[in-house]
Design a protein around this nucleic acid. Structure first.
Length: 112
DNA sequence: AATTTGACCGAGG
DNA sequence: TCCTCGGCCAAAT
């Protein structure tokens, strides 16, 4: 079931600059809707990979995974560096910066 | 081998 | 928004 991780990494890698997404959306896109936990677990194993894990937050826009970065402030720094606003470990205007993996399909389906 | 825990989510109160 | 509960599956102990 390593494909699961591969998919997670793939999607996370496709998150546009300055955008964020949630574990639930990723899980939903992969197909394991109610296993958002696995997405987070996969992220935990993504330390050595070059994926923007800082663009993945929980549904509230809370930086729940910041403790797994090199430094707790790194996640916030990266997000702010991308033009986002982080306050009290939470993304400001979260919905405004939210990116849905399904938007990839929408591009492909735009011909329909 | 069994139990607990985890970068979670949704529903109900 | 906060609390609790059930679900989900893998890794750690």
């Amino acid at each position: 079931m390593k494909e699961f991780y591969e998919k997670v990494y793939k999607i996370v890698s496709k998150i546009p600059y300055g955008k964020v997404t949630t574990y639930g959306l990723i899980g939903e896109y992969i197909g394991v809707k109610s296993s958002a936990r696995m997405v987070g677990y996969a992220m935990n194993h993504s330390h050595q990979l070059n994926i923007p894990a800082h663009r993945v937050v929980n549904r509230k826009g809370l930086l729940t995974g910041k403790h797994h970065f090199a430094t707790p402030s790194l996640m916030k720094e990266l997000l702010e560096n991308e033009g986002l606003e982080v306050e009290n470990d939470q993304i400001v205007n979260f919905k405004n910066h939210l990116w849905d993996p399904k938007s990839l399909d929408n591009k492909n389906l735009s011909s329909i």
